[in-house]
Design a protein around this nucleic acid. Structure first.
Length: 287
DNA sequence: CACTTGACCTGTCCGC
DNA sequence: TGCGGACAGGTCAAGT
């Protein structure tokens, strides 16, 4: 679920509602989802703090707190962050493929209570996600290994070329999924970008010509921008900060479309495995 | 060092 | 309907 477009959508929803709020309470039902501090330290450093800022880096949400600590939330595969009024029994989901549940539910493992009374629920079926607390002064080091943000100015073609040079022998798909090359791309948008750029995911990075690389650079940005505009992809558990589905699922070109006609040439889309991940391509259009 | 694989969890779907 | 197996968007540590 949550790659850059999904996390960015959640960030926008939460920024409006959370910025300037004070955290009145913290409930943790699964301590192992906490990182970087004990449960007791979490309470000391989070409760009574004000939320100064809600930003995003790669696939993580970044909440700067007035206590001098910053909360990093990673949703991994099935994490959800949903804001709701207490007792609202908000229905979460909505896409035909996504399960619809009320929140909180049995997968709600962490809850924040905010000034004004609303609650922020963290749900995670697979329990891969986490909340990590770091001193704000140490944040740059914590995030240092991440590559450039693909939708920011810093992501120039020259920089893309330079970071790819380190991964010359792997497949281009593995390189796109490497968060130190470029931050925020996951399996869905890697497949979508490679289709737009007409490149086979198994191509060795070194084999890419300058024009192919430039095309991929443009494709990555175009696909991500389009997905952000669609408020992300919901095909399983992703919902935005208010529990609603994203609409990119209906706009996707190849991901999850094995057997369906290629939107370009109408020949069937094929599913293979590249870099250990399910991979969707048009073998005719992608070279 | 670069790269690949397995582990972390639970749910869902598909075939028998 | 039940049961086993494969698979699922992410990232580490451990292995080659």
């Amino acid at each position: 679920m949550p790659e850059l477009p999904e996390v960015e959508t959640i960030r926008r929803d939460l920024a409006r509602a959370l910025t300037g709020r004070t955290i009145r309470g913290l409930t943790v039902r699964k301590v192992k989802l906490l990182r970087g501090a004990s449960a007791r330290q979490f309470h000391q450093r989070v409760v009574s703090a004000r939320i100064l800022d809600v930003s995003r880096r790669a696939k993580q949400l970044v909440l700067a707190l007035s206590s001098g600590y910053t909360l990093l939330v990673h949703l991994k595969m099935t994490g959800q962050l949903v804001l709701a009024a207490p007792g609202a029994n908000l229905k979460v989901g909505g896409h035909p493929i996504a399960g619809v549940r009320g929140v909180p539910n049995k997968y709600t493992y962490i809850t924040l209570t905010l000034s004004g009374g609303r609650q922020l629920y963290f749900n995670d079926v697979r329990q891969f996600g986490y909340w990590r607390l770091v001193p704000t002064s140490g944040l740059p080091q914590v995030l240092a290994k991440l590559g450039p943000e693909p939708l920011a100015k810093e992501f120039t073609l020259a920089r893309f070329r330079a970071s790819l040079a380190r991964r010359g022998r792997t497949s281009i798909k593995a390189a796109l999924l490497d968060q130190s090359v470029v931050a925020g791309i996951g399996n869905i948008y890697a497949d979508e970008s490679l289709f737009v750029a007409r490149l086979r995911p198994s191509r060795r990075v070194k084999s890419l010509h300058a024009a192919e690389l430039a095309g991929l650079w443009r494709a990555v940005r175009a696909v991500l921008r389009r997905a952000v505009a669609a408020r992300g992809t919901s095909f399983n558990s992703y919902v935005d900060g208010l529990g609603r589905a994203g609409t990119y699922w209906d706009k996707r070109l190849v991901y999850g479309r094995a057997g369906e006609p290629c939107p370009r040439c109408r020949r069937p889309i094929v599913r293979t495995v590249v870099a250990g991940r399910g991979t969707h391509t048009c073998p005719h259009c992608q070279r």
